[in-house]
Design a protein around this nucleic acid. Structure first.
Length: 429
RNA sequence: UCCGCGAUAGCUCAAUGGUAGAGCAUUCGGCUGUUAACCGAAGGGUUGUAGGUUCGAGUCCUACUCGCGGAGCCA
């Protein structure tokens, strides 16, 4: 048995293929079956004179997504999808399929999401899943090749990492309430003190009632954390990282990007250096574009679009007002009102894909922040220990996987970038 | 939580307050090169739920349910 993607190496040979019926066209004494096997599509020809009456009859009765096996001769054929077709000599049904719900015509999103487990078989979803995988591989390769150690944080945690977002709560035996993690970052900081360079990569959970095309309640995040890095080192890492991911996908997933009709010229531009502007400069851009915006507020989604539209590649916005950022971010020594934070905004209006910062490494200041934010100090004792025993400057960031996949694929809703999305009004299939 | 939009055949949609329709899908028939094939025929409906106005409601009114998009929050 061979895979459809390898057919080009078997021209003139008799091969056996196993797969599912993607589509079927019939013209009297010749039938065109399109088979998919998860690696590609191929046109199968069934001529009445070339097969037994039983096989011809069977080919006529196949329903969409019937699983079956064929044997036949591979030939080059310009008119066929993929450039090759197989002249069927024998055909065996593995398991029948009738009334497959998803047809070649348009469907609404709700219907497709209800049939997500089947929708994943379609070409477009196939392309997205393969790009997602390539991005995940690029993420792992990037860090693995640069002396980072994968460091898995707990999913179940006793407290809110940032104290702001709403968390999914669960009962944890006799220890009271526990929560699903919304970030592995604080644990990654412990890892960086132990292993120098670490990254976490796993699912995170936010119980926010967000209803937008940029939000899931369960999503994947990668978070590098590095000892002795400052904000500039952090930004250097982020831009090298994004360049690596995008260029890897361009190189290895050209076919999939084409299926998605992605304008790859926009991705070709994602090369270092990326523009770096301060929050204050970003506010000036908004003012120049006629936006009524007061210094000190956080940017909304439309604001981010205006800012990122000024540039042809991801833009790094740094030094935000500390008041709108998390308690663990270090203040700018040159201006205590600012946090040493950076957000990376993707181009083409895709918004924030990275949020990062240099962390507060002084014990006294961190204690102050925890008090200011009314966080339960007892849960942060271990985190404070990192400042008690040989504290060092360190920095890191978090990259949202699904938002990155959405941007690179050039699609308009991130629910298609994860096999089974979890959203406020959907937790099935 | 707020603002806006929507719900009619399996799917995507149409239907001045006056007999609920089309394309696709399904079934049957035709076609030896089709590309979401095409041609002919057939079956398929409690118009989201409950109430109201009217001689008459898919259409107008009220409430509810569900969904979609956006805001806020964030990756």
């Amino acid at each position: 048995m061979i895979l459809i993607k390898d057919l080009k190496h078997h021209e003139g040979e008799s091969v056996t293929l196993k797969g599912w019926l993607y589509n079927k066209r019939s013209s009297g004494k010749v039938k065109f079956l399109i088979m998919r096997d998860g690696t590609g599509l191929v046109q199968l020809i069934v001529f009445k004179g070339n097969v037994t009456p039983e096989v011809f009859e069977t080919a006529d009765s196949l329903g969409r997504e019937t699983s079956f096996e064929i044997t036949g001769n591979v030939k080059k054929e310009e008119r066929a999808i993929g450039g090759y077709e197989v002249d069927v000599a024998d055909l065996k049904v593995i398991s029948e399929s009738h009334d497959y719900p998803i047809t070649p015509k348009e469907h609404g999103t709700e219907f497709l999401m209800d049939h997500r487990h089947l929708w994943l078989r379609s070409k477009r979803q196939w392309a997205i899943m393969r790009i997602r995988h390539r991005i995940v591989k690029a993420i792992r390769d990037f860090f693995d090749e640069r002396d980072f150690t994968l460091f898995d944080p707990p999913i179940i945690t006793p407290n809110a990492v940032e104290g702001t977002s709403t968390l999914f709560e669960t009962e944890y035996f006799d220890l009271g309430s526990a929560y699903l993690t919304q970030s592995g970052q604080l644990y990654a900081e412990a890892g960086a003190m132990a292993l120098n360079k670490v990254y976490t990569f796993g699912p995170t959970f936010r119980a926010e009632k967000s209803k937008t095309r940029r939000h899931l309640t369960e999503f994947w995040m990668v978070e590098p954390e590095v000892a002795f890095y400052d904000l500039n080192d952090d930004m250097d890492l982020a831009e090298e990282f994004l360049e690596y991911i995008v260029q890897s996908v361009l190189k290895d997933r050209a076919e999939e990007l084409k299926i998605l009709e992605r304008d790859t010229s926009k991705l070709e531009l994602v090369k270092r250096p990326f523009p770096r502007i301060s929050y204050t400069e970003a506010v000036e851009i908004l003012h120049k574009n006629g936006v009524d915006f007061e210094w000190g507020e956080d940017f909304g989604a439309p604001d981010e679009t205006i800012i990122s539209n000024q540039f042809d590649r991801p833009v790094m916005v740094h030094r935000y007002p500390a008041a709108v950022k998390a308690f663990y971010m270090k203040r700018d020594p040159e201006n205590e009102k600012l946090a040493l934070a950076v957000d990376v905004l993707a181009p083409e209006g895709y918004g924030e894909i990275i949020g990062g910062s240099q962390r507060e490494d002084e014990l006294d200041k961190l204690l102050e922040r925890i008090k200011e934010h009314n966080l339960p100090k007892q849960y942060f004792e271990w985190y404070l220990d990192l400042r008690r025993y040989g504290s060092v400057p360190h920095a890191g960031f978090g990259l949202g996987l699904e938002r990155t996949v959405t941007w690179i694929c050039g699609i308009d809703h991130l629910r298609e970038t994860i096999p089974f999305p979890r959203m406020i009004y959907r937790n099935t299939p």
